[in-house]
Design a binder for these strands. Sequence first.
DNA 1: CATGAATGAGTATTCATTCAT
DNA 2: GATGAATGAATACTCATTCAT
Lengths: 203, 203, 203, 203
Amino acid sequence: MTESEASRPNDKRVMITDAAIAVFAEKGYRSARVADVAKRAGVADGTIYLYFKNKEDLLLSIFEEKMGLLLDRLHGDLNGIECPLERVRIYVRHHFNQLRTQPLLAQVFQVELRQSHKFLREYRPEPLWAYLNVVGDALKDGQRQGIIREDVDPFIAKWAFFGALDELSMQWVLSRNRDRFDLEVAAEQVVDTFFRGVLAAQS
Amino acid sequence: MTESEASRPNDKRVMITDAAIAVFAEKGYRSARVADVAKRAGVADGTIYLYFKNKEDLLLSIFEEKMGLLLDRLHGDLNGIECPLERVRIYVRHHFNQLRTQPLLAQVFQVELRQSHKFLREYRPEPLWAYLNVVGDALKDGQRQGIIREDVDPFIAKWAFFGALDELSMQWVLSRNRDRFDLEVAAEQVVDTFFRGVLAAQS
Amino acid sequence: MTESEASRPNDKRVMITDAAIAVFAEKGYRSARVADVAKRAGVADGTIYLYFKNKEDLLLSIFEEKMGLLLDRLHGDLNGIECPLERVRIYVRHHFNQLRTQPLLAQVFQVELRQSHKFLREYRPEPLWAYLNVVGDALKDGQRQGIIREDVDPFIAKWAFFGALDELSMQWVLSRNRDRFDLEVAAEQVVDTFFRGVLAAQS
Amino acid sequence: MTESEASRPNDKRVMITDAAIAVFAEKGYRSARVADVAKRAGVADGTIYLYFKNKEDLLLSIFEEKMGLLLDRLHGDLNGIECPLERVRIYVRHHFNQLRTQPLLAQVFQVELRQSHKFLREYRPEPLWAYLNVVGDALKDGQRQGIIREDVDPFIAKWAFFGALDELSMQWVLSRNRDRFDLEVAAEQVVDTFFRGVLAAQS
DNA sequence: CATGAATGAGTATTCATTCAT
DNA sequence: GATGAATGAATACTCATTCAT
């Protein structure tokens, strides 16, 4: 079995997912019709239901699959980096690079996914925990190494830090047709402030 | 004319808004039927359209009106407080108190409002700017007083800080049926970390 | 009681009727809202229901009242005219003059009234019979006088003649914003052809 | 591919059209529910929207399609007939036969179609012109042949003649539950009178 | 695997009409 | 008589999903 043969079914699934990202980003999840996605993907309406349970499953699968790839790349870049602070810096750089280089996907992650009640309430996906825990684990490591204050609760800190990044991402995405602020600058400031906030006093 | 007579039209509008908060929080904005809101408010379906243009306008009006009241109370408590840091502390305390004391409204603010494309994209409401700028202005004041580092961009900082609060709020709201973390502790830590992050070095 | 006092209630009824003619002609009977008519007439919505049973009754009352006035004027002009042919000529002249001088009313008569199922099916109003019978009676008179062929059935002839006038009226009204054909010429030709068609052979 | 397979999509469209004729004639266009038509046609509500843009399009399509068939049959019968007068006779015979043999369709043509503002005002359908011009062209032919007076304007005459037929048709349809006059007699008289009216003087 | 014609549940909104003042 | 705030019935249309081919 050749690779191309092996990947064929996967290809179609990916074609649908990619079509969905484009269509959801353009028209919004709710106004996008499944038929629109099918047409964009070059398949019949019914075919989508061979790969996804329903429209919401399609949306959630975008998250799961693209977040998986994103995590793989992130872990690749974090590979070998020991310093917790450096790991956080790389994490933030990744986060904002993602916004810049994949604006359609960013729109889906920042806006469309949150249209799903299931995503917000029931669905607590593994990839998101893994993503958050890059920071959470770095904080714990830092505490173990004495770099980070002991009285910082990593659970609260990782969510607060993620919230800060997420809100800036959201504003950047939503200001699409207005003047965007500079993501690089924002990244630097957030990291800087965060580190000053959580680092142990330096003697 | 008695006071009760004078306030009657206002009363009905408020009754509808309050009913909508309860119904939207319980069933979600999209699955809530306008008829449900009407029944809860004790009015006919059509009456809602005497006060609101449509279902989405009803949702957005909840934000505008309740946020207005919230701002009034906030400004009341901030009245006379000069220290920027103290103002931020009070702001955070208010924010989390709001969550605790008005959980239904919190659900609408954190979850249901964001179902509205209009809210996320077109609608940029004055009350939200005012709310954000309590922190933004405090930062600028702090910089003028030399308490806060000059290289902190207040625009980025206020959004990042708001994002941190908002994400913690979201997690607290969404964990409704699970074990909630302690908001007091979270508030304290976020403020503490933020201050350490943005304060000028103390000589 | 002065005349103005006596006619006051009548005035309000007429004001509503006239407002209705304008509004129905402009927006169409179905899309016109009762509230539109009320606003145009300068009265409250509910007031209309003091004078008319419902919206359809208002439409039908326009016909009945304006047709009554029209008939009065027509009978005035026919007064003293003995010759049946002359009476038909005057009748046609009246019909087309009406179109020209009261285009809004013409629109209501030709188009909007026929939106009413009741008008088309149940309601067979006296004024319409009277109007038709101006021609019908002229034909019978003509037959008595030997001017018109005996084998012409006045019932069929009056309807056919009315249909011819009505269709030309309709086309004239509907072509409002296009090039209107000349009503004078049309009137003359229809009368001429009709007379040639029904007159007894002249020895 | 068998014929039945080939004609299937057409079949469903025709089934819906025919159901609509029956339902519209029985309940009236405005009170007929789309769901009534669907049930009568034995299809789901939504299926109607695969074949027609909306309820009004369904009504107008009835006219277009049935008028097309009617015209085909008319032209078939007129084929080979040279004499303009004979063509008009056949035309009238057809018109009134249509009323008798397809009373439901007649009801739709005479009453329900005119409930549509679009039909009356915007929509100027080719089939109607073709239908009218059978008479208009006959008149022109007759003038060329010297049978019909030169001073008859064919445009006015065809509309007036059509109006006469139409009004008699209308009265016949509307008197459904009352005593109907004899269409044969009416047809004969209208044609006879019209011919006397427009024929050139015979030397 | 793929198709796409057919399905049918589900609801926001309008506006003629009423009636308490 | 006059008002106009309140009522609530009534329905066309969409589109996610299915399933026979």
